[in-house]
Design a protein around this nucleic acid. Structure first.
Length: 860
RNA sequence: GCCCGGAUGGUGAAAUCGGCAGACACAGCGGACUUAAAAUCCGCAGACCUUAAUCGGUCGUGGGGGUUCAAGUCCCCCUCCGGGCACCA
């Protein structure tokens, strides 16, 4: 029988292999051309359509010119979801665009002598063609946003002016990362281990420059507190943002400085920031950052101090530049001055130390060696006293330093015996009441410096009035009126790596008139950080062609918040914090109602090859084009979903793509072979025979599994495995199908639903087979199949029987068997009986859970 | 140092609630078909012991302990890998 069957199948395979060969290279471009010819094929419907809305968003790419596997995976996930939601009856917005400003375009310009705009637009066209070839269901015609075009970046300028008005954009002098080889400022994310991302041996310098900043710190508390309610975001991302914002609640305390003999009139105090005011009775010195104003003052008349301070600043700088600031060896020098502890009246020596940061807190600390590891290390080195003032109950002699807070105070005056938490509160209030301190909160988050000395970015719409005219703010800095927008980025610009911002060398751009007094003025020649572009692009998608506003509020309010945002975890901090900030600003401007941009965020894993992230330098890059040429787009994207769950890293193995391609070929042959008999179907599918019952049962179990998974776990790998099981089961019965043992209506039901289940994963093949089956309409517009629980139900169960927790046998029973039947059956089994010889049954457990039944016999 | 992830066959992985470990694939092996190959189809496949072969048995989810009738899953300790933060007062 098996022999006959094998032979038969082999012959059938041979005879049909030519005729029914799956040829994605022919099928896919044919359907692509058809869809490309219908610009609105994936367009969202009007808000009045009555369907629930679903905004499915994937992070927009930088147009490097080549789609990489990370993109393919990211977009395959989003596209599967978008297609599923459409079939589930949602009005789906699924847009795509280009994060088109940025340094690579300038580097390419220098290298190839191609204008950045030309290079960028060419790359976009190339990548768009790649995306269309893969069959992603984007509404290109309705939504495509290109951030380097004035239709978009004019609104960056508009928002900037609004922020100037609201006091959210300001100019100040600040330290920036500077790469001498690139001759430009680098964004923080472009500094890798203290070096330039493009020149790995080039240490990034700190330069002092006048910069534009956005006051993101005004929203620090809201950005932090909001994280608590963002259940749809991964905990990991929320934690990273919490760390990044770095809120520390504590107190500021003012220490008076005792007049020194050399300067009897001196009176300035030192304000320290501390989160542990409860330990103040244990303070044994004051430590100042080397850049502290008082230190600078004292060093003027103290050359020894001056030299020491200079050395410490150099050490800090070096450590910061090599990324070793955390490991700097602690050094300090006593100033000979003395501060007064306002709580105890005690005298504390004032030191300058290289481990104190000038730009955090107040640049000054009270040193409590007994309860802070760093202070302990420092005090031990320099022989400063160490005084215990906090201990957990019964641990008064535990070794120091002890930095726990689940403890109470010792030797702390009126506060002795208080818990740390209570003392922190009470002592801060006490300090406030007596005028030498207050509660205070500091943040790690700094205001967002957006100035870039680059050409290929959004011009900042400000001018500097040369007459010293004072428009709104001091120094002749004048915002342009809205009517002057957009400030166009000039086209013919010589891009070099010398002499500051390239725009400064374009005379017709640089020289302008002051909008207030009409006098000669100079334009701002820096451009905006590209993270500005990506902070609000997803609002523009909802109304991409609006020439009068960034977007229509009503439209945005219909679509927002984004229901699902999908992208790489590498954007967890910068892009995703800036986007949240921008959303809050727009809300406060009255443009939108939502406070957060995205309800749910999904971060997919990286694509790995040979154990490492794909990169040119490692030479392990797999080109999507090559995969598509060899196996087709359906196989390539389906493999990206099959090889691992989407949140995990994925090891790219070409053999796996080939495997998926073989699977799709089997589906193709199956449908091609039975489409005629299925096509003749009339009447309802019926589970008449046992075989029909079995096939329909698997079908409905598969439908249920995939439907559920799309709404919860997104384990598309097991969804695809379930489809494979269904296909294996049907093809395993081809002999029976050939003998007509399954009604054509049931066959049609099986094949049609199989195609529908494949649609989110392999849209080309699904479209082709849907048509071959003679079904009408676009397959992706069909309703998603609904699982019939009745048909999915098993008639028979496989009951594992354990003896002392070890499997003895698996016995078959009718699904409806009651507990008595199960017990009897489990005791009647030979293999079980064999294990019960000379034993006494202590317990006879029958476990009945939704996941299945199980028997365990506990014997002695 | 602190905070998140992760570790399961030769490989990618599955096991959603504590209930049959290894579904589904890849690679491999054997067979059918073929002059041959490709393609296709059928089958085998965690390790070890036992056996002529079956049957059967033991062990097995990074390591060690624990809870439980039952642990990949829960608890405690540890190792290694990946990521984030880091003299942040």
């Amino acid at each position: 029988m098996d022999q006959a069957r094998t032979t038969d199948a082999a012959q059938r395979g041979a005879e049909q292999s030519e005729l029914l060969r799956y040829n994605p290279g022919e099928i896919e471009p044919r359907w692509q051309a058809l869809w490309d010819a219908q610009p609105d094929v994936y367009a969202a419907e009007p808000h009045t359509c009555g369907k629930p809305k679903f905004y499915c968003l994937e992070m927009l790419p930088y147009p490097s010119g080549q789609l990489h596997m990370g993109h393919v995976r990211n977009y395959a996930i989003g596209d599967a979801l978008a297609r599923f939601m459409r079939m589930r009856g949602y009005n789906v917005l699924h847009p795509m665009g280009w994060d088109a400003f940025g340094l690579p375009a300038e580097n390419a310009a220098i290298k190839n002598n191609t204008p950045p705009r030309e290079w960028t637009l060419k790359n976009m066209a190339k990548m768009k063609a790649q995306m269309r070839r893969i069959g992603y269901s984007y509404d290109w015609a309705g939504t495509e946003v290109t951030t380097c075009l004035p239709e978009y970046y004019r609104w960056n300028q508009w928002f900037f002016l609004k922020m100037v008005e609201r006091g959210l954009a300001y100019r100040k002098s600040s330290k920036v990362n500077w790469c001498p080889q690139c001759a430009t400022v680098l964004a923080n994310e472009q500094v890798v281990a203290g070096c330039c991302w493009r020149h790995e041996d080039q240490i990034v310098e700190q330069r002092e420059l006048e910069q534009w900043f956005l006051r993101i710190t005004r929203y620090a508390d809201e950005l932090l507190d909001g994280l608590a309610n963002m259940a749809g975001w991964p905990e990991k991302v929320r934690t990273m943002q919490r760390n990044w914002i770095g809120r520390s609640e504590g107190a500021e305390v003012e220490f008076a400085v005792e007049a020194a003999s050399s300067a009897p009139e001196e009176s300035a105090g030192i304000t320290v920031f501390t989160t542990r005011i409860d330990t103040i009775f244990g303070a044994t010195s004051i430590q100042l950052a080397p850049q502290h104003a008082l230190v600078r003052e004292w060093a003027k008349t103290d050359s020894a101090l001056f030299g020491a301070v200079d050395a410490m600043i150099a050490q800090q700088k070096a450590a910061r530049e090599t990324g070793d600031i955390g490991n700097i060896e602690k050094h300090g020098v006593a100033t000979g001055r003395v501060a007064i502890n306002p709580f105890t009246g005690g005298k504390l020596p004032i030191w300058v130390a290289n481990y104190i940061l000038a730009d955090y807190g107040t640049g000054a600390i009270m040193s409590v060696p007994a309860h802070d590891e760093r202070d302990f290390e420092f005090a031990s080195r320099y022989g400063l006293p160490i005084k215990r003032v906090v201990a957990a109950r019964g641990e008064e002699d535990a070794p120091l330093p002890y930095s726990g807070e689940d403890a109470s105070l010792l030797d702390s005056g009126d506060w002795t015996g208080e818990s740390c938490a209570a003392a922190q509160e009470k002592m801060a209030l006490f300090a406030q009441k007596h005028g030498f301190g207050k509660k205070s909160t500091t943040y790690r988050l700094k205001d967002w410096g957006i100035s870039r000395q680059r050409y290929w970015g959004t011009p900042i719409p400000m001018v500097y009035c040369e007459r010293g005219h004072d428009g709104l703010s001091p120094g002749g800095v004048v915002p342009l009126p809205e009517s002057a927008l957009p400030v166009l980025l000039p086209e013919q610009v010589e891009i070099t790596q010398q002499g500051g911002s390239p725009l400064g060398k374009v005379a017709e751009f640089l020289h302008t008139r002051c909008p207030v007094c009409g006098g000669p003025a100079r334009r701002e020649t820096d451009t905006m950080d590209t993270f500005v572009d990506s902070s609000w692009y997803f609002y523009r998608y909802t109304d991409a062609k609006n020439a009068l506003q960034p977007f229509d509020s009503q439209t945005a309010n219909y679509w927002f918040p984004i229901d699902q945002y999908i992208g790489g975890v590498e954007h967890a901090i910068l892009h995703l914090i800036y986007s949240r900030f921008w959303t809050k600003v727009m809300r406060d401007m009255g443009l939108i109602r939502n406070s957060e941009p995205a309800e749910r965020l999904f971060t997919q894993g990286m694509v790995i090859k040979d154990g490492a992230k794909m990169s040119k330098s490692k030479g392990n890059v797999v080109s999507p084009d090559e995969m598509i040429a060899r196996y087709g787009a359906d196989a390539t994207r389906m493999y990206a979903l099959f090889a691992a769950p989407p949140d995990r890293d994925l090891e790219w193995q070409e053999e796996g793509v080939a495997g998926i391609s073989r699977f799709l070929a089997r589906v193709y042959r199956l449908v091609s072979r039975y489409k005629v008999s299925a096509g003749e179907a009339n009447g309802k599918p019926a589970a008449e025979s046992e075989l029909e019952q079995r096939l329909l049962r698997t079908l409905h179990q598969t439908i249920a599994k995939i439907t559920e998974d799309f709404q919860a776990r997104w384990h598309f790998n097991t969804c695809i495995a379930a489809i494979m099981i269904l296909v294996n089961e049907i093809t395993g019965e081809e002999m029976a199908l050939d003998r007509g043992e399954v009604s054509s209506a049931t066959l049609a039901e099986l094949l049609r639903n199989l195609i529908l289940l494949l649609t989110p994963f392999a849209p080309f093949l699904a479209a082709e087979l849907w048509q071959q089956m003679g079904c009408s309409g676009q397959v992706f517009s069909q309703a998603w199949p609904v699982a019939d629980a009745e048909l999915a139900r098993e008639s028979e169960i496989e009951l594992p029987v354990q003896v002392n927790g070890k499997l003895a046998n698996v016995i078959k029973l009718p699904a409806h068997a009651d507990e008595a039947t199960i017990k009897a059956a489990s005791l009647a089994d030979e293999r079980v009986i064999a294990r019960l010889v000379d034993k006494t049954i202590v317990k006879h457990l029958v476990i009945d859970k939704s996941s299945g039944k199980l028997v365990n016999l506990v014997v002695k």
